[in-house]
């Protein structure tokens, strides 16, 4: 388990002090993908770098399996690795296999383990065929996949993923998500930051939301969406709707404490959309039918994490503004 307690990181630049992380308390248990979402340049990367021993916190503590990175950095570094998306941090003059071998030596991976592991990682990221090619000749995506393999070379107990799918092609990003889910299922602790909220929703068992370096909220994606007043959107198509139907919908929405959206589709059909936290699809259709309308389509959209984060973001802006 990686645990932090009241983590704080200040950067001094001349006279000004910028607080990048402010009192964060996190837990990244093994066997789960933990999400870290941020608003307003929130200090996600700073947090990840602190966990990766690249930055030293100004105050607060970090424990990696009870180890203190400040006291025992080597042991901690053996247990973790970091993959930052969008950057190709590998050596251009070496081949894919040589890059992995090189980092394997830095991590002191035993020889008998390293060979098979390199083969496996190359297969994992689909670079088996390009293993002997120098990275200079790789495409951007290939180099990025190699850097993902590099991040797994020491078989880390904890994997820190900073925007890992940034800039990857969609199919490769999908495969990477599968791999991440699989790694967590096999017992690794994973910390994931991503701009793609669908990715976080799909993978993470628990999500921390931070803003301006401060903890805003946390929970499972489902909890977060529920707690931030996630609204279901009900959309009903009513062909040839009369003014009575429109009046009935408007009145219904007013009673439910919301506003109904009324649009005309291309064929003249009325498209009604109502957002509400509760189960309103039934009562809404009853109201429409009661006013003499007929239903041609009904669609209910569940609230997404994205909606929740956007709502949180708006709230955060209100607070700071």
């Amino acid at each position: 388990m990686i645990e932090t307690q009241d983590l704080r990181k200040e950067f001094r630049d001349g006279r000004t002090t910028k607080v990048a992380v402010d009192g964060l308390t996190l837990a990244i248990p093994p066997g789960r993908v933990t999400g870290l979402l941020g608003l307003n340049g929130a200090g996600k990367t700073t947090t990840i770098k602190i966990l990766a021993t690249l930055l030293r916190p100004t105050s607060g503590t970090v424990r990696v399996d009870e180890l203190d990175p400040l006291r025992d950095p080597k042991a901690v570094r053996h247990r973790i690795n970091l993959i930052a998306g969008g950057e190709r941090m590998v050596y251009a003059r070496m081949t894919g296999r040589e890059n992995l071998w090189y980092f394997g030596q830095l991590y002191d991976v035993p020889r008998a383990v390293l060979g098979p592991r390199i083969d496996e990682l190359l297969a994992l990221v689909g670079l088996t065929g390009a293993a002997g090619t120098v990275v200079e000749r790789y495409s951007r995506g290939m180099a990025q996949r190699l850097s993902i393999a590099r991040g797994l070379i020491n078989d880390p107990a904890y994997l820190l993923l900073d925007e890992p799918t940034l800039g990857l092609d969609a199919p490769i990003a999908r495969d990477l998500r599968r791999v991440v889910a699989r790694l967590a299922a096999e017992g690794k602790g994973v910390l994931l930051t991503s701009h793609y909220l669908a990715e976080v929703e799909e993978l993470c068992g628990h999500v921390y939301v931070i803003g301006d370096g401060r903890h805003l909220t946390e929970g499972s994606p489902a909890e977060l969406t529920a707690r931030t007043g996630g609204h279901r959107t009900v959309r009903v198509t009513v062909p040839g709707a009369s003014p009575e139907v429109e009046a009935a919908v408007t009145a219904f929405a007013a009673r439910a404490g919301t506003v109904a959206g009324l649009d005309r589709a291309g064929d003249g059909a009325l498209v009604v959309s109502v957002s509400h936290p509760g189960e309103i699809a039934g009562p809404l259709t009853m109201a429409i039918v009661g006013a003499g309308g007929t239903l041609a389509g009904l669609e209910v959209t569940e609230p997404s994490l994205e909606d929740a984060i956007l709502a949180l973001n708006d709230a955060a802006w209100l607070v700071t503004a």
Binding site: A52, L54, M89, L106, Y107, D108
Partner: peptide, 8 residues
């Protein structure tokens, strides 16, 4: 940064 990330 990767060199400093490693325990070498």
């Amino acid at each position: 940064e990767l060199l400093f990330l490693s325990p070498a």
